[in-house]
Design a protein around this nucleic acid. Structure first.
Length: 605
DNA sequence: TTAGGGTTAG
């Protein structure tokens, strides 16, 4: 954004061209300037065009029309147009103005500004050829040593995934400053090379807010949430200024961990330090509360926000769907449309999931159809996956198969996985076998598919095939992804892995588990499996730990990395009744609120 | 009278 252009006329009339200037106002100002001959001054006219194009992208067309009327626009003007387009949704139009410079009869040639903006345009509009082509032009015109251009090239190659090229550009910068070093850290993180990113970060003689933010957001985005929070603590110790962008990443890390104490603390920190509540920060707060199972607080933040964008609405809808409040999610969707916000593809994932969790099949179908018909959004594989889930989990397996057979994109693992889960739920052996085989074709190391396929054969007493599947698994070295439950007690994050006895309080946990088991037996709960299986699943161990450490009035909150199994689900229901304890489990897909022997998912998950 | 680094939803 450029600062508004203010112009005072001879009659002391003040004209301002800023981000809120409407097209009508622009036309009035333009007429005034033309009548008074002010546009004959090439410096002033350049500023005029730049102000229109840069302050509001919606007015780019108007600035183009103004510019087209001039035979010899200045370099400043043309560079400003390249810059404006590089930041807009039409970056490819930057090249139009680059060509105007080349073809200019005014003997001007592109300068360092031109290439800086042109490289940015390429980063916005990446095609395989455009980036390297512009890099070639940079070399041809002798700007490969310009630090601004090089910094832009680092970002561009990072988008292309060419980390080697990023390092090559970085190597060409003499004495890289903070800005350039941060760009390089960010490039490493974007390409997934966190080791190099951290090496560069640790080697910096001075680290500012931006450098920390690049590193923290990198960790947060790749799921290394504990490391992100650790770095945030380091930032506080080094007394580096913490801003809204930093807090967005911190909240995102809390969301992943389901660390509600950390999240609440972060919220308090934002308020205490008067960090500006931007739309992005508010949205991150909603997401954090929703993913920590506190949907009422999430909605409180949502209703309190003055400005909301499509991310904000979608985040709230997703939170409601995850928490099983499908009807409320659909109500919110209506309200979103009434507020003039158009949904996008991600919004529809939440909407279709909302229909799925409450079993609204016809509604889901109508929403799916409206996606393309009303909003012109082409459904992606994941939307078809949601439809497969919607039909299959309600037992309409034939309809689910129809969706898979008729989807215009190749059915992905998500679609077959949804069908497979439903086949297990509705005990359809043949279809389950087909789904498992398809899933294995797509994901050769999908542990769940092998296990379910083996179970399907065992159920039909086809021991030879069941054994064969197990042997294939062993031969391929396919191991179950280790189940892990995370819980936060008194601000500390505890992780429990399957069969892991390393927790300092494991002795107490074991005693508690035995007590739970004996209470369950006394109350008539019959475990599906032998007593030693009690220790097997991480969520059971976490619940025992929660019963020891969490105060009676506070619910136990657990985040599980995989889907919760039937056995654990039944057990948690029983524990919630016998111990009169609210237990909230977030599994890979959704929330389960257990209270008084019932779960909010009503058996749908 | 134009430049460079960090942020949100599946």
């Amino acid at each position: 954004m450029r600062s508004p252009l203010r112009y005072v006329s001879k009659h002391q009339m003040v004209y301002t061209i800023g981000s809120s200037t409407s097209l009508k106002e622009l036309k009035q100002i333009h007429t005034h300037l033309l009548v008074n001959g002010h546009l004959n001054d090439s410096n002033f006219s350049g500023q005029f065009v730049a102000a229109i194009a840069l302050n509001n992208h919606k007015n780019i067309n108007y600035s183009e029309k103004v510019l087209d009327q001039w035979e010899t626009p200045t370099m400043f003007c043309l560079n400003s147009m390249i810059r404006a387009h590089s930041k807009s949704s039409t970056p490819e139009r930057s090249f139009l103005y680059y060509n105007k410079i080349l073809r200019s009869s005014d003997h001007i040639s592109p300068d360092n500004y031109t290439f800086n903006f042109l490289v940015r345009a390429c980063t916005q509009h990446l095609t395989r050829w455009s980036g390297p082509t512009v890099h070639g032009l940079v070399i041809k015109h002798g700007f490969e040593c310009d630090p601004h251009v090089l910094c832009g090239l680092i970002r561009m190659y990072a988008e292309l995934g060419g980390l080697d090229s990023c390092f090559r550009m970085f190597g060409l910068v003499r004495n890289p400053d903070l800005v350039c070093q941060t760009a390089m850290i960010s490039a490493c993180a974007k390409c997934g090379d966190f080791g190099s990113a951290r090496e560069l970060f640790d080697a910096m003689s001075q680290r500012d807010t931006w450098a920390f933010n690049a590193m923290i957001s990198g960790y947060a985005q790749c799921g290394q949430s504990k490391e992100a929070l650790r770095l945030f603590r380091m930032m506080q110790l080094e007394e580096v200024k913490i801003d809204d962008v930093c807090m967005v990443s911190v909240l995102s890390a809390c969301s992943h961990l389901g660390a509600s104490d950390h999240g609440r603390w972060a919220h308090a920190y934002i308020e205490r330090h008067k960090i500006p509540m931007t739309v992005t920060l508010g949205t991150a707060l909603i997401d954090m509360y929703a993913k920590c199972g506190n949907i009422s607080k999430a909605m409180e933040v949502f209703w309190g926000m003055k400005e909301k964008n499509v991310y904000t609405w979608t985040c709230a809808m997703n939170g409601l769907a995850m928490n099983g409040a499908g009807h409320k999610c659909l109500e919110l969707f209506s309200l979103m449309k009434e507020n003039g916000i158009s949904p996008n593809g991600v919004s529809f994932v939440s909407i279709l999931r909302a229909c799925s969790v409450v079993g609204l099949i016809e509604e889901g179908h109508e929403q799916f159809v409206s996606m393309k018909r009303v909003y012109g959004i082409e459904p992606l594989a994941e939307h078809y996956g949601c439809m497969v889930d919607l039909y299959a989990r309600s037992g309409r397996l034939d309809d689910a198969v129809n969706i898979i057979n008729n989807m215009p994109v190749t059915p992905h693992a998500g679609a077959w996985g949804a069908l497979l889960n439903a086949c297990k739920l509705h005990r359809d052996k043949e279809l389950g076998e087909l789904a498992a085989r398809k899933l294995i074709q797509l994901e050769g190391s999908n542990h769940c598919a092998f296990v379910i396929l083996s179970n399907i054969y065992s159920d039909s007493r086809d021991w030879a095939r069941a054994d064969n599947v197990r042997q294939t698994m062993n031969a391929k070295g396919i191991k179950k992804k280790p189940g892990c439950s995370v819980m936060e007690v008194d601000g500390e994050v505890h992780e429990f892995f399957v069969g892991d006895t390393s927790h300092p309080r494991y002795g107490d946990i074991k005693v508690k588990l035995e007590e739970i088991y004996s209470n369950l037996r006394l109350s008539g709960y019959v475990a599906n499996t032998k007593p030693d299986s009690l220790y097997r699943h991480s969520e059971k161990v976490a619940i025992a730990f929660g019963l020891i450490t969490v105060k009676q009035v506070v619910p136990i909150r657990i985040v599980k990395n995989l889907r919760i199994c039937w056995d654990c689900h039944d057990l948690v229901k029983a524990v919630s009744k016998i111990y009169n304890k609210e237990i909230i489990v977030r599994d890979r897909n959704r929330f389960h609120h257990f209270e008084d022997g019932h779960c909010s998912c009503s058996g749908y998950w």
